[in-house]
Design a protein around this nucleic acid. Sequence first.
DNA 1: CCACTTCCTGTTTTT
DNA 2: CAGGAAGTGG
Length: 641
Amino acid sequence: MNKIFDDLNTNQKEAVFSTEGPLLIIAGPGSGKTRVITYRFVYLIISGKALPSEILCITFTNKAAEEMRVRIAKITNLDQKEVEKLWIKTFHALGLRMLKEYYAFAGLNRDFVVYDSDDQLKLVKSIMKEYNYTSITPERSLETIQEMKEKSLGDISNLEDQYLVENFGELYQIYQRKLSENNAVDFTDLIVLPIKILRNNPKIRESFQKRWKYIMVDEFQDTNLSQYELIKLIINENRNICVVGDDDQSIYGWRGANVENIRNFDKDFKDCKLVFLDTNYRSTDEIINFSNIISNKMLFRREGKIIKGIGNKGSKPTIIEAYDIYREAQIVAKIIKNLVRDGYQYKDISVLYRANYLSRILEEEFIKFGIPYKIYGGIQFFERAEIKDILAYLKFSVNPRDFVSFSRIINTPKRSLGDSAVSKIVNVSDIQNVDLLEACYIFEKQEPKYSVGIRRFLDAIQILRDEKLSIADRVLKLVENIGYYDYLRTLEGDPEDRIDNVKELIVAIEDFESKGSGTISDFLDSAALVQPSDYINENNSVSLMTLHISKGLEFPVVFIYNVVDGVIPHSRSLNRLNELDEERRLFYVGVTRAKQKLFITLSKISRSFKGSVEYRSPSRFLDGISEKFIEYYKDYSNKFL
DNA sequence: CCACTTCCTGTTTTT
DNA sequence: CAGGAAGTGG
């Protein structure tokens, strides 16, 4: 056997070589999970059990998928092109890919677009306005719609919860109809529509079942009902399904993730083989001991899990209680300075927090201390208004049924086409049964009052449809044609910053095009699935992110900021035991990101967003932990300042 | 139609 | 306190 497998431990080897039938791998933090999946992938190929194209591997992030590709390229002789073609994707990328193949079976046409949460919300708002829904916020409506879609797998007649059906059934139906009229799908559709297609078309289902002989799913604890269903539909009678995960790290319950998927996998698949990876190669013993204390207090948990270290010695986790939340940020900054003085690099360090707003306070201190930092999450590049504007132009140019994009750009920049013009155009489109672009052409002739503005809009769209030019050139021309930079300069905030973002977008498009020919639709698809973790550690700066985003990552030094009751655990989860458990798992995830040093900071005084002072206690997760395992400092000693 | 004002509401986490 | 919605006057 090839010697690349020699550096695996006994359990890891068992996981890699157990190829036939269902396999459940419970993999604790730092236990070499990614390596096991990668090696298993490679083993399947070099043992001749499968061709590279016959293996499907589902990862949680694009970044994980990309890293796997790089690793596989290193240890096999597949060339660049073959590696690109491997089936290593996130669930959403897989679903999108399936839809691109079978869009017609879902009532879509080829250039359908993917709505992000912002687009979804706009659609819901417009529906609520049109149909006079007032008793509930649009945000809450959208949440409910998503929940219904997820639970019913896209078929509302399956929904058992009669309360939801009675109160939101109509709204749900309208939303779904509008999506279809817009030739658009939302994130949940990316999973649910493929499920419908597979269920209703045995031939298509069989072709997918034949396509993949072996299927692996990473981070299985964070799959939801529909994702699990999709998997069940594509595995064939050999049931070579391998799922990997850790129920202690399930943190997306609020998004529909179902821990029971992993807890019950060995009940769903009775003959399933079970492998535990319980050795943590990542962290020092001190950090592992601390993390075991945290996880042992979980109420609902698979039995008998204790994570062992490999004898890496370090220092005990440090808990620091500061005077107030500002001082707390200052202490974090100060310690980072000291660490860098002692030889650490900024990129070795990460600061994690429960909610995005906490990054602002850290940010201010970091600027004062001259610490380079990068915030992941929060407002994403592709969510910035100026980027969304340009993307909306692109979306509308390929999909002129997309009302959400249309209403975003028809009057951006100002063309004297306000609400009344928009509703008249929609009217034309409804009555004459044409898409919004054609409706504009008709409307231009009907209403001289608006014709100048409409003409300018149509010219702009026409530029994007000129296939003689590259996409990047078209966008460049568009930006110039509509005077977009001048428009940005009229807005609040830093206009040059926004202009830079647009230029960055154009570079991203050039990049995309340099990798081979692609259409506007292809570019939009790739942009739709970008995640915050995709660009981590690209330069030497401290990484700031939420605990959620940190899943799957590791850093030599980790700070967890503002570990107080009401934040971790979050105040809205205090009443429900399973939610409290999820908060504990979230904390556990944060703690286990640390390789060498772990700092937990807190403060009793913080400020609520209304400007009043708020008092907090240290997180209950820190209660009753013996001094044997931690260093506890109160900053009144000024030790850290 | 649009720019300006005032009012109001609401901080978890994100594909 | 901030960001969006709704209302007002040019």
